[in-house]
């Protein structure tokens, strides 16, 4: 590798560090402990979309232009997930978690890092079918207002419904999936009844604290974007927010292994990354 190329790369890394530091100091959004490999990729995609050439130019625009800041936050918080992603997770949730939830008079649920809401609607449908929805309150949080607006709207591309329908049935869904939405042109809008007990709200896992005690916390494919230090901090936060014997769900390639709270949970099902707080 030429020394010139190496120097250019190093400048890029310094610029990214400065951008993240500036964003934190000026706006309080803390991406400094995000996984650098992923966020670097995102930053470059976003700056190309802004038709800029350097991270430094992007930094200047983010710090001085609120619309640009909002686009940045949306860009780094939209995760391309799907409804009933990993159907076996939801199937296990039906079989193992639902019976536990029946024993509570009310159930507080936190979906931490809900992005555009696919998981929120999936869980609401599941709870509705199990006749539990009425006593549940779902707190769906994310860092970006724009992303929460989308989640609240509950509008998804029609083209995705084929995969979602198949996921839904694999996840133990026994109804017509299309009963839950109304199609219009190339989009569908999900029934507002599914949002009745959902509170969408801004919360930043990197900087905000606990705000309630929950019987269920799902934080799937969110911490993969964090480095090990931030992961450890967030594991502590989620643990502290979960009631004793509460249920904790992760993405299917995430693990409690090597986290500070590993020994304080038991597996409900190892493959589907569903845990129960036992200590």
């Amino acid at each position: 590798m030429s020394t010139v190329q190496r120097a250019v790369d190093k400048v890029e890394d310094i610029e990214i560090g400065l951008l993240l530091e500036g964003l934190y100091r000026v706006h309080g959004f803390d991406f400094r402990d995000y996984s650098r490999a992923s966020i670097k990729r995102r930053i470059y995609e976003l700056l190309r979309a802004e038709k800029l050439d350097t991270v430094s130019a992007f930094q200047s625009k983010i710090l001085h232009d609120n619309a640009c800041l909002e686009r940045f936050l949306l860009g780094v918080s939209v995760h391309a997930t799907s409804m009933f992603r990993d159907p076996s997770f939801y199937l296990t949730f039906r079989k193992r978690v639902v019976p536990l939830l029946r024993t509570y008079p009310t159930v507080q649920i936190w979906i931490a890092g809900c992005s555009t809401g696919e998981e929120v609607y999936s869980l609401a449908i599941l709870l509705e079918e199990e006749r539990l929805y009425g006593k549940c309150r779902i707190y769906a949080t994310d860092i970006s207002q724009a992303v929460l607006r989308r989640a609240r709207d509950g509008i998804f591309p029609l083209a995705a419904m084929r995969d979602y329908t198949s996921n839904y049935h694999q996840a133990g869904g026994a109804h017509e999936f299309s009963d839950y939405y109304t199609a219009q042109y190339d989009h569908v809008i999900f029934s507002s009844a599914l949002r009745k007990n959902v509170v969408f709200s801004e919360h930043n896992l990197a900087t905000d604290g606990s705000f309630n005690e929950f019987q269920v916390i799902l934080c799937r494919n969110v911490m993969i974007y964090f480095n090990k230090d931030l992961q450890a901090r967030v594991h502590n936060l989620l643990y502290d927010s979960l009631s004793m014997f509460g249920v904790f769900g992760l993405g299917n390639k995430e693990s409690l292994k090597f986290t500070p709270r590993e020994t304080l949970y038991e597996h409900l099902n190892e493959k589907d990354k569903l845990y129960r707080k036992v200590a």
């Binding site: 996984s35 650098r36 490999a37 992923s38 990729r41 995102r42 939209v78 995760h79 391309a80 997930t81 992603r85 494919n221 993969i224 974007y225 480095n227 090990k228 993405g251 390639k253």
Partner: peptide
């Protein structure tokens, strides 16, 4: 690489992402 994730490497460890395809 597991299905439906991007696979990256950072500081000698794997890092996954669900960024768009």
């Amino acid at each position: 690489a597991p299905r439906d994730y991007h696979l990256l490497i950072e500081n000698g460890s794997f890092a996954l992402s669900v960024d768009p395809a």
